[in-house]
Design a protein around this nucleic acid. Structure first.
Lengths: 157, 157
DNA sequence: GGTGAAACGTAGGCCGT
DNA sequence: ACGGCCTACGTTTCACC
């Protein structure tokens, strides 16, 4: 079973410390990380590697400033489907996977099936997505947009 | 003016390429990145440093697997306030900033003021947050929870 | 923007606990 | 099973072209 290196037993406080440090700064050097958690570099690296292999750490990403990268419009959109079949869901999810404006797609409980996070250059770009992409999908029944005016807290990692 | 190294003029296609590569793998070595974008290591590093100093790249983070780190329950919650004063908003945002379960708080247009993303260990932990934290805030008027059953697309960086 | 070389960090074998 | 030491190797970084 590949990638099933299974984390033996519990994660101790050093592992927690490593994860916190890497969440804050994913590019910290192993040397600095080792010192921060009070381990020798080799022991520290072994733990990080184990956490990666166990699937606890799934990757590393640069975090970009939205407005400096041309994203001036963010909205959350709820989408309801007109059929609740597996085929309709899969068709919708395929279409969503191909749209770069869709950064997140969550399958939720409640009156509608999906919650999307949309990032676009401006309102005009969003309107285009709304009518030309969402509006043309045959499975889509109800669309409600909630424009983000600000994010007092955002720890998306 | 510190950190205002200002990106002179437009970002070219090499910069775009660098940002895409670093968003996919924030820990790629400068050597590999340089090769991927077709630059020498030193020129590549100069661009990355400039992007960081200009605030285009705001940081690097490890991405963790929610369920392997004890997060078994995720929900989006809309919150309406009973007063639309600045003071009420600030009090609410202060309370939210201190709650570790709240990973995101967005100020949105529509019938309610806020959309939160909540991450908790399980339903019981969420119930505790719902009644003991959200339920006791005097400004809060309406709470609606949408439990996340899955995320077919999730590019939260 | 590229080159080269010194400084630095990584990764893995080995041994002790 | 896990931590520390040592070292060969790879990477970063900087002055210079």
């Amino acid at each position: 079973m590949p990638g099933r290196a299974q984390y033996t037993g519990a994660m101790d406080s050093i592992d927690q410390h490593i994860l916190r440090a890497l969440t804050r700064d994913g590019r910290i050097s192993n040397l600095a990380l080792a010192e921060a958690v009070g381990l020798s570099p080799s022991a520290c690296l072994r733990r990080v590697t184990a956490l990666e292999r166990a699937g606890v750490i799934t990757g590393y990403r640069a975090v970009l400033s939205p407005d400096k990268t041309g994203v001036g419009f963010v909205a959350y959109v709820t989408v309801g489907l007109n059929q609740h079949t597996k085929a309709a869901q899969e068709a919708f999810e395929r279409a969503i996977a191909q749209s770069p404006e869709v950064r997140e797609c969550h399958n939720i409980t409640g009156a509608v099936e999906y919650l999307l996070r949309i990032e676009a250059a401006d309102l005009a770009a969003y309107k285009h997505f709304h009518t030309e992409v969402l509006g043309t999908l045959p499975q889509v029944n109800a669309i409600t947009s909630y424009v983000v005016m600000g994010s007092p807290k955002d720890e998306r990692a």
